[in-house]
Design a protein around this nucleic acid. Structure first.
Lengths: 137, 137
DNA sequence: TACTCTAATTGTAATCATTACAAATTAAAA
DNA sequence: TTTTAATTTGTAATGATTACAATTAGAGTA
């Protein structure tokens, strides 16, 4: 996706497409690794020398509010950000501390959500040891 | 459950049953409100004037490691603790900020957990507006 | 293009939950 | 008891996140 296209997406979601917001969203679209604010900051400060940590949080907040990204709190210490907004769960490996996606069907989500509550967003977090770390143990 | 009984439970889970740990576990057993460390601290400092915030965290960590309680991170700002360890999900109301339990069936959990990952613990977090707040809006 | 107004960015400082640490206390075994 | 190891506790440190005010950039208008 080109920067121009990303700008259009932001605009169509009511988000003013500043250079920084476009850069943050582009980074998340091309790095599906659930990066932390600090990781994003270090990656983008090279492109924008005046880039600020605060801008990462501000941009992410604007993108999350518009429904373009999700904030993941599977890690108690720090937030992670994810451009994938379709149905999926998150798995955190306690050994390598990476976060992976795994598929979650529409039916199982429907089965989960309590009927009497409204306007629901859901997160499925699973913690354990990933296949790669299992092999190396 | 008496203090004596709680002591036995801790001991049988390999946790040295100190007064403070018994008090924290008793508080969580009798208050299924998913309290924060601060809430527990304020409640117990009345019983133990020398009670410390650090002890809440230490005790909770020991209890969680023994599998007696769970740490809930549905709230990005602060941890919550829950003596309920059977299958259930957590719902956070964005209006009153309370956390409620809701049932999650064994099958839906099995359907969720990715097969290739091991030693899994899972958390299902749903966010929205609770029935009580829906009525008052 | 220049102008204007509003919104966004940025750097610094503050906040606040959580943890580190070392001294004092307690638990449990001998 | 006495001893020893584990736990508690108060204070200080940590570190992610936010508040804030000054600067800068975005987008519409003439």
């Amino acid at each position: 996706m080109t920067k121009q296209r990303i700008s259009d997406v932001l605009r169509s979601h009511g988000v003013c497409p500043t250079q920084q917001r476009v850069a943050v969203y582009e980074y998340l679209l091309t790095h599906r690794t659930h990066p932390t604010a600090d990781t994003i900051y270090h990656a983008l400060v090279q492109e924008f020398p005046s880039f600020s940590r605060t801008t990462v949080y501000n941009s992410a907040k604007a993108l999350a509010k518009a429904g373009l990204i999700r904030v993941i709190t599977i890690d108690a210490e720090e937030q992670r950000f994810d451009a994938g907004i379709e149905n999926h769960g998150h798995f955190r490996c306690t050994h390598c501390n990476e976060v992976f996606d795994f598929p979650v069907s529409e039916e199982s989500v429907t089965a989960l959500s309590p009927a009497s509550f409204e306007g629901n967003t859901w997160d499925v977090y699973v913690t354990g040891v990933c296949p790669h770390c299992q092999a190396s143990l």
